[in-house]
Design a protein around this nucleic acid. Structure first.
Lengths: 239, 239
DNA sequence: CCTTTTGTCAAGTGAGCACTTGAACACTTG
DNA sequence: CAAGTGTTCAAGTGCTCACTTGACAAAAGG
């Protein structure tokens, strides 16, 4: 097989992936699916677009083999097709952040809006949790927590936080995370906690970054790292 | 800043990067630039497209901040804008290989065409070179070798190989690499060497994969790993 | 079996992209 | 400063893509 022949066969395939990543909307769908699988309607609602349009973008992603489907009764659940896809999405975001001044600026603005309460490095998280030095809070929607979370984290969706402050211990340090670097929920939670006298900080990044770092290197199916479907029922007594 | 507002500002930026990756031609240009910086004409020639078209694609890449330019006398030299870009390209290829059956098949076919002479893992390379157990051959064009190569490698462009077999020692094992997984030069070199009675094997992947693994984590300018501009003059006496 | 829910398809419109051609530009070198 | 490279620009054509609307399909459940 000649060199040009191989190029003519492989590059169009690579471009299929690239084309799938060329739409704002599709990237948002990928980002949502990186948190948890969802059906079309749920995705449409979260991404604020019409169901028909969402469906068509999802099929574009499916044609590029970036997502897979599974039927669940009357609804169809989409999920990322593999760990590679998450890694690719993170690589794209990293490049955008490093190369596009506009993105870097937004990140800095958001970071500054937050009280700059020192971010906790993801690498030290597991040690901190194990030593019970901190309480690790996952403030994402319960659906996403249930699909996967950082080991030792407690589910406390951001909408419930203000109503449940009284349940929290006052002698512990809180470390909060949400979807990822571009998710503000953790910042909001930290701000709320601090306003109420708690010691709180956010994790650097969030679930998608954690999942990207701890992805099962094997190509086979996940070893379910951080995917224990344990407390679908959320522990109300923290500590 | 509201959540939707942040999304409306960041996702279009991410999509800029994605759109830049959506064209077969642009990906080929990125792949070439991953080996070494080049001017427009050289890129046009290697990618087998018109100069004007090449220029326009390069400007699209530049608009997405994936490449940078520098003037060198009368010509303009393009190069990748950062290590991130290489990582992104590798991630895209990895995803294509894992998710698209067509690509996996091509890789397997090419791998089978090669005498399946056990591939050498990149990780053990540096040890092998240091122990002088092997001779590491870089069969890419000299321009690319000069821009960067695996430490300890000798430049022996594929076109010169057949004329210079007599210079090679017969008591050593040869390990060959070229641009990367989708480059066949190393396979061709191994085949030629074996036909002439040499002990030869190819490296798993090639320069782009090596560079991706050994990229300077720092965002600052390169510490020139593997970029010693040492022997622009190629050592003719191997060993 | 017929209704409801959920997702997909088909057609149509407007915008945007890829490639070609020929001209213009920028910088170097004589 | 003129001639000559090497690169970019501008205009034009044909194709592809995004989104909307309204109709259609597939399974669940009374």
């Amino acid at each position: 097989m000649a060199h040009r022949e191989i190029k003519d066969q492989t590059y169009p395939q690579f471009a299929r992936i690239g084309a799938a990543l060329s739409s704002e909307r599709r990237l948002e769908l990928i980002d949502l699916l990186a948190q948890a699988p969802r059906n079309v309607e749920a995705l449409a609602q979260e991404a604020e677009m019409s169901v028909a349009n969402t469906s068509q973008h999802l099929q574009a992603l499916k044609a590029a083999h970036l997502v897979e489907t599974e039927r669940d009764g009357t609804r169809i659940v989409y999920r990322l097709a593999g760990e590679d896809v998450l890694a690719l999405w993170l690589a794209l975001r990293a490049t955008a952040e490093a190369q596009l001044p506009e993105v870097g600026e937004i990140v800095r603005n958001v970071g500054a809006a937050n009280g700059s309460a020192g971010h906790v490095d993801r690498a030290e998280l597991s040690d901190l949790v194990r030593a019970e030095d901190i309480v690790l809070l996952d403030v994402r929607p319960r659906l996403e927590f249930d699909h996967g979370h950082i080991p030792g984290a407690l589910a406390l969706p951001i909408e419930e936080l203000s109503d449940r402050l009284s349940e929290l211990p006052t002698n512990k340090r809180f470390v909060v995370y949400c979807r990822g670097s571009y998710c503000q929920w953790a910042d909001e939670a930290v701000a709320l906690l601090q306003r109420n006298g708690f010691d709180a900080a956010r994790v650097e990044g969030g679930w998608s970054e954690w999942a990207g770092e701890h992805r099962t290197k094997a190509n086979g199916d996940s070893a379910d790292v951080g995917h224990e479907r344990d407390h679908g029922e959320i522990r109300r007594q923290v500590i």
